[in-house]
Write a protein that binds this DNA or RNA. Sequence first.
RNA 1: GCGGGUAUGGCGGAAUUGGCAGACGCGCCAGACUUAGAAUCUGGUACCAACCGGUGUGAAGGUUCAAGUCCUUUUACCCGCACCA
Length: 805
Amino acid sequence: MYNKEIDKKWQNKWQDKNFFKAKDNKEQKKFYGLVEFPYPSGSGLHLGHVKAYIGMDVIARKKRLEGYNVLFPIGWDAFGLPTENYAIKTGIHPREVTDTNIKKFTEQAKSIGFSFDFDRQVDTTDPSYYKWTQWIFLKLFEHGLAYKDETEVNYCNGCQVVLSNEESQGGKCDRCNGEIIQKTKEVWMLKITDYAEKLLQGLEEVDFPESVKLQQQNWIGKSKGAEVDFKLVAGKKETDENLTVYTTRLDTIFGVTFMVIAPEHPLIEKYKDSILNVEELIEYKNSAKKKTEFERVQLAKDKTGVEVKGITVINPFTNKELPVWVSDYVMMGYGTGAIMAVPAHDTRDFEFAKKFGIEIVQVITDGKTTVTEEPYIEITEGTMINSDFLNGKPVKEAIETALDYATTNKIGTPKTNYYMKDWAFARQRYWGEPLPITKCEKCGLVPLKYEDLPLVLPNLKDFKPGEGGESPLAKAEEWIKTTCPKCGIPAERETDTMPQWAGSSWYFLRYIDPRNDNEIASKENLKYWLPVDWYNGGTEHVTRHLIYSRFWHRFLYDIGIVTTKEPYAKRSAQGLILGTDGEKMSKSRGNVIDPQDVINEYGADTLRTYMLFIGDYADAAPWNENGIKGAKKFLDRVVRLENIMVEDYQKEDNELEEEINRTIKKVTEDYEAMKYNTAIAQMMTCINLVYKKGVISRKHLEQFLTILSPTAPHVAEEVWSKINSTYIEETTWPMFDESKIIKDEIEMPVQVNGVFKFKISIDSNASKEDIEKIVMENENLEKYIDKNKIKKVIVVPGRIINFVV
RNA sequence: GCGGGUAUGGCGGAAUUGGCAGACGCGCCAGACUUAGAAUCUGGUACCAACCGGUGUGAAGGUUCAAGUCCUUUUACCCGCACCA
């Protein structure tokens, strides 16, 4: 019987033997397998972590047996709000909480038998680690990619913290799920937008799931269009000012009947003397700001707006004067914060025009559709009308022609826009990396000298953020006081800290050389280990960690630190484990399964085997207690194999030989494709046959245990130890013999009109003609058909024979 | 609204990519062992008819000798984004 005592025994021995230590051996072929390092929360490892780590552990263990030098590291993404909130509540220092949690996580990870190289652990909250996080920040600053700016930021009232766009998707806080409000604040930003194009292009050279690529592409949101200048008329006089808009549909410029600017558009402030209804506009701006996410999204169809009175613009193509409106359906953060509205061919503009009674001019037609009830937005088969020199052209051509015209006449330029915004890179919190910046009255924002890193967090007792949304560090008076690194006069430190995503944006580089005090990692080690060959993790990080870390890595490549453009050659994602009720596991639903409970009752290998067997690794699957018992039963059957082992078969057993070889082949291929469920099913089938035969040879048992070991390492090792004095880790992955799998005679199904009738045994090398002849002579055939009425015979060797009558 | 995905027995899920639908596991039924139970081992298990046979992969059409797989239409659910100008 398999029991959990077996687990501990082998975990200790593996550790003593250093089997999982990655060697910086440049001669050996390498494999770098990575999993997302966990945030060590108080509640311990959850099933999501476990599933992610088991998946890559199987690959890592297999690669070692295949002769690779494997780097399979683990670490701790330990900065973050929950620890800090816990510290605020209990008064226990975050350092202490973090250390306790890391210890717990380490024990748990070991108890599941993950083959991590624990000697390479990194902890993002360790000054020897965040020294390099700060170093990278200084490099970004040096290259103009970190800047401080007063902008509209996402702010979570609950957490009292500024969030990035990625952290506030759907208008909700990533952490507390609370409502996000917009706030004007001076914060540090990283210019990730400068890397939009590189992040997009990089996707072409990596092996990521298509859905992941697509999601990142959408997040980056590239669009090609043009900026066009509309001459501004204020107080009935033409000004020198232009209202610049961004459009992807320059072809529709003759259909523009009004302009819309965002409520915060600077034009309002600048021309307040000419505008007749400034107060009304300010009031609109304030009320728009107060709208909740629900009102903005759900009631989006109900367009609101105010006309800017006293100001108009001139359409540069028609010289017609157009009214300017303000509406919150135009965002200051995208394009120029102003649009040319073409109600005939844009849903939003159409709704707005309908509501405010603005003229609608159709400029594209398919010959039948009119735009009285709804806009015509189909572009593929439309041709231009009411559009002067564009008339008669198909849409695509019209876009080109209009753009040429605009460029030639200097009224517009081609322009590519990205939806992605710069990364708000400052949190008003204690438990994060201090920003290594000094605020000097004379010199402004001055970076620390590289040799003065790390800038270590002061030891505070009170971690509460300030009332005005300032960092707890603002209270650390002694720490704040410093001198300007440039001119030497008294100055103050920056009190915001970095977001949690900072440490995780480069941690995979530190594993490569974790104790190096002079560099992120040595050049030789980076060259040897990069890129990460395979990165497995959750889908929730696609537009967060995965995009941030690609950005940092690409930057480090551009400044010559790392050796590859992209950090991860291959990315895979595991599916969710749902509760027994089929719902997402959550404390509030009370359907959470603690992996530790499962290990205590059934052993680590049962948990591992079950989780891999439950269904396709990439799909979500509900937890099922009975399934666990099935996995346990299988492992018990493996344990008992020892009893029926013989040194060699009395006479050659072709059937067992064949099944073992088939199993090696299937498991080898399926592991590599993360099709763990079918790999395990095949191993079960194999064991079932062995039991039926009541015997297995030493060689076959050894081979079987070797291929089982990535899934169930403790059980495999235990049985191995009974028949061997070595370790599985010291053996090599078995080769399969293809010739043993191919049978001389195969059973082929015979169909009549596509319906299965009977099977026939045929030489596997038989040609089409031979097969047809053999079947025609088969006595069974007459039972089903009259040979004279055969219209056609389809023979696919190895697959099927079908008679059409 | 846009983008992506999923749908197969009582349940979790297989199906070499167009070639015997339901591998493997759970559950259930039967048998062996046992005083008995547990455990273990063996066999059975899509549905209807229960004899020939017929019907079946969310629904409706289509292509094909042959469709879970391809095409068209459609429904439900899940995930992501959301006024992207």
